[in-house]
Design a protein around this nucleic acid. Sequence first.
DNA 1: GATCAATTTGCACCCGCGTGCAATCTTGCG
DNA 2: CGCAAGATTGCACGCGGGTGCAAATTGATC
Lengths: 340, 340
Amino acid sequence: MDDLDGAPALPNVTADDVAARAGVSRWTVARAFKKDASISERSRRSVLAAAEELGYVPDLLAASLASDRSGLVALLVDDFDNPHKLVMLESLTRVLQREGWGTLLINIGHESEIPQALLTASQRRVDAAVLIGTEFDDAIIGTALGARRVKKLIVFARVSQDPQTLSICCDDAAAMREIADHLLARPFRRPLFVGGPDGFSATLMRKATFLEAWRERRGVTPEVVHVPRYDARRAFDLLIDRLRDQPEAEHPDLVVCENDVLAIGVMDAIRHGLGRSVPDDIAVVGFDDIPLAASPAYELTSYRQPLAAMGDALVAVLKSSAESAGRQFVRGEFVVRRSA
Amino acid sequence: MDDLDGAPALPNVTADDVAARAGVSRWTVARAFKKDASISERSRRSVLAAAEELGYVPDLLAASLASDRSGLVALLVDDFDNPHKLVMLESLTRVLQREGWGTLLINIGHESEIPQALLTASQRRVDAAVLIGTEFDDAIIGTALGARRVKKLIVFARVSQDPQTLSICCDDAAAMREIADHLLARPFRRPLFVGGPDGFSATLMRKATFLEAWRERRGVTPEVVHVPRYDARRAFDLLIDRLRDQPEAEHPDLVVCENDVLAIGVMDAIRHGLGRSVPDDIAVVGFDDIPLAASPAYELTSYRQPLAAMGDALVAVLKSSAESAGRQFVRGEFVVRRSA
DNA sequence: GATCAATTTGCACCCGCGTGCAATCTTGCG
DNA sequence: CGCAAGATTGCACGCGGGTGCAAATTGATC
């Protein structure tokens, strides 16, 4: 069956074939492909040469089965409406690929599907599952963890209260203090905070920090509204509803949003719904620094999540064998543009 | 080793365990989990019951290895800057998951990385690789196909000229004719076509169809510019560069863009760069119908890619065992908004 | 109750490679 | 040149389950 090395034989080339060709055993072939394996330089070379000629590449599926390490990370994403998800996906896949991991993308329609998604992931023996979700509650993590079949569960870009879980997240509190400092240095008098769905703990930190900072320095607590979903149109509608019948003098002069998607909706509402101007009439601040925030149509002041650092932190966790839990906060960067 | 059925034992529950408990053989267990398998109702029930009690789920990794079908589809994405990618990812993952496939997301930084990406995918034995790329040339597909290790290669949302490849794509020609019809019914006199990087064949069909339709009915060929990347800012800059020193009377009164990302950049340029108005001074048309197109800030007239139908077509291809090649065109939907 | 076709079930063998240890080969040194 | 430590290499066994066929069972018919 020794084919010429021209046409790539469709019948799979296995380590055995390479072994035969190189005149060594199958296990030596495996060693040649393994970093830090105990193998002589001479046989490594001859194995690699044989592999090259035969077009051999190790089969990761078989390797996963045998080693109980799949080199796969499941990314559970629940809100594909937020452009920031795309940025995160880009960043994470790139880092993971660089480090040799594969990425299983799982679409979570609703938080109730999380357990099912984790099950599916575990059936593929992923080494870790990363929850890049927005609209889910901590309770669901507990449940999912109950049926713990996944080796590691990491909550990304969001804080989980669950003590068994590891969260890797932007330091929302520090970020919001920085934002508040910037805003408090100017004479805003009627701030409004626009948050996501009430009750999701994801939103808590940013809101709480901002409200507290403001109260501390101005003695009053800003008003708050909650948009029922992280959706620009909902934010738009909500703001219009709220301000349409209000005299302009009572409009807020500053709207701080929990994220950019909401902020975009708010800016659209102010400009196209109410016919007022940003930032002259009303200043707006977002969070995440999605690409759109930098566009000339918005020039939205925002806070950039430190995705690179968060990705590195994730990789560190994946590499470590320790059962890690707790929270890792990474500092982001405040990006001031025209909107505030 | 017969544990109580309370705590899920960490040592993996295998089909053998279930078999023992149900008093059948391992193969009968496998049959119970397989649709259309030859198994009596009675044993299926008892197997499923035993499985439930033990918390058994079949191991997809082992199954993949044995059956040579991984149930995995690799999605190769090359341009994470385009929000439309997020829409596609959402749509595809949802369809694929519904049909039982897993999704391997691979980030292609540059077209030169495609062969490597395909290799990685093949090492995980994906059943198919789907190229959701924009900025790559057909040549690369040929090369990648040369080292054919992936069972199926599908080019998604873009036409490949390669005869060995299957493309699933919106019917760009029909779409552009529809767009042109709409525009030709009105008295535009100075159309401009804004395309992506020149040379990528992806852009050919839309551009060619539009130019031809216009020429046919008006006797003149619209002007064309090519943005060096599918990037709103580049489109912005390019348009500014081109029109800044031109008297307004010579500005185009209609800009047709190859996709929405470019159209957004163009609109921003017209409004914020040139201080002119859309659609009063200049009308703009895009393609893809990204979410932003519907926002009140843009109200961009666009053409919605039929993602659901395209996803269904993809699933059909995946299911079929036939070596399919050629092109499948699906009809999308013209969405008229205020911008044109 | 015997007989034969239709169901069900069991099994040998394979998928391609990792783990841990024992066997073998190299070295350096006395 | 002989020997032991260290470096290499080979191997039995297992990972969890799919395939194709043969054995066993069931049921229907006369």
